[in-house]
């Protein structure tokens, strides 16, 4: 019986992973865009991205575009796999295969 992934299951982290998984492999989202999409605050989003990065589910790249710092978050292969398993588990729960 598959288990829900505790790291992904937190609502904001679920949104972050869903947004990143909607993109092709190796394509990331800028921090500002992710913030707009999820409706999170800077601090909250930063903390949850750090949790996902520690689990190896996302990679975080910091670069300068001109003089502006830009942070890009990308789902890793492990993150995509974990997200797919998490979604499959949710679907199993709805289908009544798990109690």
């Amino acid at each position: 019986m598959a288990e829900l992934d505790d790291i992904i299951h937190q609502p904001l982290r679920l949104k972050i992973m869903a947004a990143l998984n909607a993109l092709p492999v190796a394509t990331g989202l800028e921090f500002a865009r992710l913030k707009k999409l999820t409706g999170a605050t800077d601090g909250n989003l930063g903390a949850h991205i750090e949790t996902l990065a520690k689990a190896g589910y996302v990679s975080v790249d910091k670069a300068f575009v001109g003089k502006k710092p830009q942070t890009t978050v990308t789902a890793t292969a492990a993150g995509r796999g974990a997200f797919a398993r998490h979604v499959a588990t949710l679907q199993e729960i709805i289908a009544g295969k798990q109690v």
Binding site: K15, Q91, I94
Partner: peptide
């Protein structure tokens, strides 16, 4: 473990954010 209602809500959140990403692009 969560119940099917909570699972449905989580999947709805995922659909919502995927739509937002597509709209934004």
């Amino acid at each position: 473990m969560i119940d099917s209602k909570e699972a449905s809500a989580a999947l709805a959140d995922i659909d919502d954010i995927v739509q937002r990403v597509k709209q934004s692009q």
